[in-house]
Amino acid sequence: MSLEGAAWRRFIVLGDAGAKGRGSARGRSSPVSWADRVAETLRSARPDLAYLNLGRRGHSAAQVRAKQLAKALAFRCDLAAVVAGGHEALRDPFDVDATEAELHRIVGPLRDSGADVITLGWYSPSLLAPASREHTSGLRERLRLLAERTREVALQHGALHVDVAPGGNGQADVGDRELAAAVIRRLVSHLHTPRIPA
């Protein structure tokens, strides 16, 4: 299976530090985030793909909605990735209900515009801005809770959800390369899933 035949022409990424990724060195100066890797793979099937990453470190889900959503809709994307809520999960207490409500307010309008939407259910703490030591305790549990709620949001809106968990070989972290591969596998699966006529 491959992304050959993919019809997406305009790919946008919204979110917090997880949307920007950690990056890895290409040569000496050009970082390649998970989103950049996904865009590169999409361009292998459609060279004219337009790509924009609006992700900002430190943005809460409410700020993603307030400052990025209108730009994404104006971009007329047909594929969007939403990575939000991680900024809130860095802190304890974590109001997961409020975060879920904001995710609905982001994913819903994107889906209503006709775009396919990808949500990410787990991105490792290393992809986020460092948390202070006092907030580190319980971070993985808060990210797990965020992942569950994000999956529910995706299900309700018919979005494509990607669950990325720590590696089964004892690897406690998930980097940009692994995250990009998981997103691409989900897109390939979506392309090759038979559609049921309405």
Results as ranks from 00 to 15, higher is better:
residue 3 L to A: 07
residue 3 L to D: 07
residue 3 L to W: 06
residue 7 A to I: 13
residue 8 W to E: 10
residue 10 R to V: 06
residue 13 V to K: 01
residue 15 G to K: 03
residue 19 A to V: 00
residue 19 A to T: 03
residue 20 K to T: 13
residue 21 G to K: 00
residue 27 G to Q: 06
residue 27 G to F: 09
residue 28 R to F: 12
residue 30 S to F: 08
residue 30 S to L: 12
residue 31 P to R: 11
residue 32 V to W: 12
residue 34 W to I: 03
residue 37 R to Q: 08
residue 37 R to A: 11
residue 37 R to E: 10
residue 38 V to T: 05
residue 40 E to G: 13
residue 44 S to C: 10
residue 45 A to C: 08
residue 48 D to E: 14
residue 51 Y to G: 07
residue 53 N to G: 08
residue 54 L to H: 04
residue 59 H to W: 09
residue 59 H to Q: 11
residue 60 S to Q: 01
residue 63 Q to N: 10
residue 63 Q to K: 10
residue 64 V to R: 00
residue 65 R to G: 06
residue 65 R to E: 13
residue 66 A to R: 14
residue 66 A to W: 07
residue 67 K to L: 15
residue 70 A to G: 07
residue 73 L to A: 05
residue 78 D to W: 07
residue 86 G to M: 02
residue 89 A to I: 06
residue 91 R to V: 09
residue 94 F to E: 03
residue 95 D to T: 10
residue 96 V to N: 01
residue 97 D to H: 14
residue 97 D to M: 12
residue 99 T to W: 00
residue 99 T to C: 11
residue 99 T to R: 03
residue 100 E to R: 09
residue 103 L to Y: 02
residue 105 R to Q: 12
residue 105 R to E: 10
residue 112 D to M: 14
residue 113 S to M: 06
residue 114 G to K: 12
residue 115 A to R: 01
residue 116 D to M: 09
residue 116 D to H: 09
residue 117 V to C: 09
residue 118 I to Y: 00
residue 118 I to A: 03
residue 121 G to H: 05
residue 122 W to T: 04
residue 123 Y to L: 13
residue 123 Y to C: 03
residue 130 P to V: 02
residue 131 A to R: 03
residue 135 H to L: 02
residue 135 H to C: 02
residue 137 S to C: 12
residue 138 G to Q: 08
residue 139 L to Y: 07
residue 139 L to S: 09
residue 140 R to D: 08
residue 141 E to H: 13
residue 142 R to K: 03
residue 142 R to E: 05
residue 142 R to G: 03
residue 142 R to H: 08
residue 143 L to N: 00
residue 145 L to C: 09
residue 147 A to P: 02
residue 148 E to Q: 15
residue 154 A to T: 03
residue 157 H to S: 06
residue 158 G to C: 15
residue 162 V to P: 01
residue 165 A to L: 15
residue 166 P to K: 08
residue 167 G to C: 06
residue 171 Q to F: 00
residue 172 A to K: 14
residue 173 D to Y: 09
residue 174 V to L: 06
residue 175 G to I: 00
residue 175 G to Y: 04
residue 178 E to M: 07
residue 181 A to T: 11
residue 184 I to D: 11
residue 185 R to K: 14
residue 186 R to W: 10
residue 188 V to R: 08
residue 190 H to M: 13
residue 190 H to N: 15
residue 190 H to I: 06
residue 191 L to E: 11
residue 193 T to V: 09
residue 194 P to T: 12
